[in-house]
Design a protein around this nucleic acid. Structure first.
Lengths: 157, 157
DNA sequence: GAGCATTTGACAGGAACCTGTCATAATGAC
DNA sequence: GTCATTATGACAGGTTCCTGTCAAATGCTC
């Protein structure tokens, strides 16, 4: 690499750590949700609409993903019976994604496993260090969002 | 969610932050490497073999990815002329991936942009906070690796 | 050296994200 | 009310990761 400053090196170290942790978290999420017949991505969508039915576009905005990514996940969930599209009084075309009984059952199951997992991991790290990690990563995220410009989130094509 | 403990809530907050930061970092990486005709994934492979030619399997181990993921990226890089497969004296079948002149040129270009970017971002965060973030995320990664078991990295199928 | 396990690249297929394009529904300017 | 703009879902296609399977090359045991 072309001589990085000390700050640049520390930031790069954070990048590498975040990449690796992200991969492990996805792996852990898949493991938590697999017994319920779900994956990380599908579980997260169910979690969003647990607060109430929402359109695909609204879910995408909540999750910070592209609209079409969530569309694909929602279609898959519908095909497998975890969600259903219900009429939206506010929009003729944009139906709402709603949990089915099976979806709610699966979600509850994953949430129980998730609670135990998060407690186990959260308790394994010194509270001050864990809090500092959250704060530091949030700060980095905010700076990066600003650095990337207002177009930080995926938008329409 | 089913009543999470305080530690579990903090850990979950870290998870959400890491997911979001990861997405933004990929976006930033793509933006840095696009002017050189690369993407985040391809740039990273070039970075590994900049230290010297290596087999696809060796690159995968270095990056912590599945062998076949890197195989695909390397094949794409070869097709576009950024790398070439050269004979490996130690193995008849497993050729080494080696930078071409064009690959080296592209890599240098991205590295310059990356250095400026990392310095800008690294300097925008209080040094103590940045260091704490690195330490906290690393700790979380290590705990999670242990929690997931020895099978933490992708392995052969 | 013969035989078996491991490593490797090739090939196939799937999951989850992305972008772009299109027609339709909603919204806002006038 | 009309018309341009925006939001939305459907559809198509691409990238990057994954897994599984196979044959060839290597390495290890004996």
């Amino acid at each position: 690499m072309p001589s990085l400053t000390r700050k640049a090196e520390t930031f790069s170290a954070l990048v590498l750590e975040v990449f690796q942790l992200n991969g492990l978290l996805l792996q852990a999420g898949d493991r938590l949700s697999a017994p319920a017949g779900l994956t990380s991505a599908r579980w997260q969508v169910l979690g969003v609409i647990d607060h109430g039915p929402a359109t695909v576009a609204a879910v995408a905005r909540t999750m910070g993903l592209a609209r079409q990514s969530v569309q694909q996940t929602a279609d898959a969930l519908a095909k497998e019976g975890f969600v259903e599209y219900v009429d939206n009084p506010h929009h003729q075309r944009a139906k709402c994604v709603s949990l089915t009984a099976a979806g709610r059952r699966a979600l509850r199951k994953v949430e129980q496993a998730h609670a135990a997992w998060a407690d186990r991991l959260g308790a394994s790290i010194a509270p001050a260090l864990l809090a500092a990690a959250v704060e530091g990563v949030r700060e980095a995220r905010l700076r990066l969002e600003k650095d990337l410009g207002v177009e930080a989130r995926p938008h329409e094509g």
